[in-house]
């Protein structure tokens, strides 16, 4: 499923535009990060992808088809959106039912629902908790439930708003595993995040927003090298990029392994 945004403009009643002339293309199976300062328009843009918000001007196409007349419920079979706050999502009193909520709404057959729910729960190590009430769980556990319930919808496109916020390193490893599975399934994943180290290691392409405008769209490597871009977008260099920049490595490294490879290559 290819996503194409053309000249999107959005404003809340007569104010300054929250999104100002945003155009972008995302290919099927791509993993993209949407980054920028607080209030830069990331979440607003995400809500355009599944029709929760409608642009004042511009068009959104998914696989060439314009989505502006499609209802959110219809689009939800194509684009699944993880909300920042899991408590906005959780509607059921049992973890299993919660994760099955989306697939059921999408009227998947019973058997498929069972498989999808079990798989998603397993991804986030929630199987032992499947009979719990989500509200008896901690914040990050509820966040995992919310993630599982989005992935269980088995949509070709997933938009994850701050999936790492409040998660500990062990849980982030679970998320990384889930992202790997989504890649194998050839899903398009758009991640909104403030966690620069997470993005550096996992996402090849970033789109940077600042003040509702697109400031950069390209390789994560390039974005993290551009100090003035980072300053405008409220971002900081990830740790390894910082090291790599300091040692003037020609190709900045994103992971410890890359960094060491660069180091040894130069030594030779």
């Amino acid at each position: 499923m290819q996503i194409r945004l053309e000249n999107i403009i959005f404003r809340y009643s007569a104010g300054v535009p929250v999104l100002n002339d945003i155009s972008l293309d995302i290919k099927k199976g791509e993993r993209v990060a949407l980054i920028g300062h607080n209030g830069s328009g990331k979440t607003t843009l995400a809500k355009h992808l599944n029709g929760l918000l409608r642009p004042a001007a511009g068009t959104i196409r998914i696989d060439g088809r314009k989505t502006d007349t499609e209802s959110v419920a219809r689009l939800s079979g194509i684009v699944a959106l993880l909300f920042q706050n899991p408590d906005d999502m959780i509607a059921k009193r049992r973890v299993w039912d919660e994760v099955a909520f989306g697939p059921k709404n999408l009227a998947y057959p019973e058997g498929r629902i069972k498989i999808l729910v079990a798989e998603s729960l397993a991804l986030f190590e929630l199987l032992p908790l499947q009979d719990c009430n989500p509200y008896d769980l901690g914040y990050s556990e509820r966040k995992r439930v919310a993630l599982a319930s989005i992935i269980a919808m088995d949509t070709p496109i997933l938009v994850l708003d701050e999936p790492t916020a409040g998660m500990d390193p062990r849980e982030i490893v679970l998320l990384t595993g889930a992202l790997e599975k989504l890649r194998e399934d050839y899903k398009t994943v758009i991640i909104i995040s403030h966690d620069m180290d997470f993005i550096a290691e996992l996402v090849p392409r970033v789109i940077c927003l600042a003040g509702g405008k697109k400031r950069f769209d390209g390789l994560v490597r390039q974005a993290f090298q551009d100090q003035s871009l980072l300053a405008v977008c409220g971002l900081l260099q990830p740790q390894i990029v910082r090291l790599s920049t300091y040692f003037r490595q020609t190709e900045p490294a994103l992971t410890p392994v890359e960094f060491l490879e660069n180091w040894q290559r130069r030594a030779k």
Binding site: I240, F259, W263
Partner: peptide, 19 residues
């Protein structure tokens, strides 16, 4: 339930490589 920082991981790898 925690993890080394990328800095520490890089240092550990460097140590393994004798750097």
């Amino acid at each position: 339930g925690l993890d080394w920082l990328p800095y520490t991981k890089a240092a550990a790898m460097a140590k393994e490589e004798g750097l």
